[in-house]
Structure formats: structure tokens, C-alpha cells
């Protein structure tokens, strides 16, 4: 474990917590893409499938984190599609998730480290996570604005994988550890946030709201 991965995971936890708090406190999921949250839930379940296969005996931090990620993302989907369904902005959350899931699944079957079920599920999860934020960014471009709290959520969510890139550089240099698939997907994922990062740093930090077109 290094400082970059630690802060990356903390940033990821913060993002999940910020979104849950926003929906719970405002009792509304306006401005939140349910599809993105569904895709994240699929990512966690397919990536941590080992939790379900081998009974989780020893509870170490990593297993607890995996359980938190899975339960929090499923609970967030429950809030969006059931509890606060009336506030879900289905009209603007209109990016076709199939256009993200099918290519990720196809690519996972073509480009992977080992052609076995668990490894392909892990690879699918990595590829899907890289593009999972697109419905959320699409929704913001359709509505033309993002609530400040949603911007903080996106900043934490984007920062998590950006910090992982620093973690991978660190591990390459000190541990000669390379996980090419995760690195390439992580770079793509972080690039997708660049436009938002620019808006966040030039606007939200100054107390303004993000309104598109910028």
C-alpha cells in the first residue's frame, strides 16, 4: 500500500458517501444518473465476485472495503430507482448503457490477461468502470448544469482513479509491478474527467456553479 492508493481509495469512499448523503439529505436524486450508478454496481459485483464464491472467512480491510463498495452502490441504486424514484430524471438520463456494456464485455473477451471466467469478469469490470461515468457527464450536458454537491461527488470520483495512476507509477518504479489493462483503462477513465476537472477548478472552487455550455 502507498500513499497514492490510500488517498485514492479514500477519495473513492468519499465520492460514494457524498452521493449517498446528497440523495438522502435532499431526498432527491435530481441531477444524478441512475445508469452510471447501476454501471458502478455492476463493476463492483463483477470485480469482487470472489467474495461470493469463497466464503469470506478472514475479514481484512480489503474485504471490508469491497463489501462497503458493493452494498453502498446497491443501496444508492435502490434510493434512485425505488425510494426516490419520483425525483429520478429519466428523460435526461438517456445515454444507452448497452453501448457501454456490450463493447466492454466484447473487449474483455478479446484483450485479457488470462482467458478464464474470473479474470474476464475482472477485465470487463475494469473496462466498464472506465466509461461508467459517461451517462452522468451526458446527463449534466443535457440539463446544462450540475448541483455543487454533485460536482464535489464527481471531483472525488474522478480523483480516485487519477490518484491510482500515481499509485501505478509508484509501483512500477519501486515494485516493478505493472497491470497494463488497469493502467490503460485508468488513464482513459481519468481523461474523460479532464473537461469536468477544468470546470470544477475554475468555477466550483470559486463558489460558482457549473453551467454548460461553459
Amino acid at each position: 500500500m502507498n500513499i497514492f492508493r490510500l488517498f485514492g481509495d479514500l477519495s473513492h469512499l468519499a465520492a460514494i458517501a457524498i452521493l449517498l448523503l446528497k440523495i438522502w439529505k435532499t431526498r432527491s436524486c435530481a441531477g444524478v444518473s441512475g445508469k452510471t450508478q447501476l454501471l458502478f454496481a455492476v463493476c463492483f459485483i463483477t470485480r469482487y465476485i470472489d467474495l461470493f464464491l469463497h466464503f469470506v472467512s478472514l475479514y481484512n480491510t480489503e474485504k471490508v472495503m469491497k463489501l462497503i463498495y458493493i452494498s453502498a452502490s446497491v443501496f444508492t441504486c435502490y434510493l434512485i430507482f425505488f425510494k426516490f424514484k419520483a425525483t429520478y430524471d429519466g428523460n435526461h438520463d438517456s445515454m444507452r448503457a448497452e453501448f457501454l456494456i456490450v463493447p466492454a464485455a466484447g473487449l474483455a473477451c478479446l484483450i485479457n490477461t488470462k482467458f478464464d471466467a474470473i479474470e474476464i469478469l475482472w477485465t470487463f469490470s475494469i473496462y466498464l468502470e472506465a466509461v461508467a461515468i459517461l451517462p452522468q457527464l451526458f446527463l449534466i450536458s443535457k440539463t446544462g448544469e450540475a448541483e455543487t454537491i454533485t460536482s464535489h461527488y464527481l471531483f472525488a470520483q474522478g480523483s480516485y482513479r487519477a490518484l491510482y495512476i500515481l499509485n501505478w507509477i509508484y509501483r512500477y518504479h519501486y515494485e516493478s509491478h505493472v497491470d497494463t489493462i488497469a493502467i490503460v483503462a485508468g488513464v482513459v477513465q481519468t481523461i474523460l474527467y479532464c473537461d469536468f476537472f477544468y470546470l470544477y477548478i475554475t468555477k466550483v472552487v470559486k463558489g460558482q456553479k457549473i453551467v454548460l455550455p461553459a
Binding site: 472495503m65 463498495y69 490477461t113 488470462k114 512500477y172 509491478h177 505493472v178 497491470d179 497494463t180
Partner: peptide
């Protein structure tokens, strides 16, 4: 660079 077979990251 050794390929990490077991993915040890979240």
C-alpha cells in the same frame, strides 16, 4: 516487470 496475476488492488 512482473505481471501481477492476482489483482491486489480494489
Amino acid at each position: 516487470s512482473n505481471k501481477s496475476l492476482a489483482h491486489d488492488e480494489l
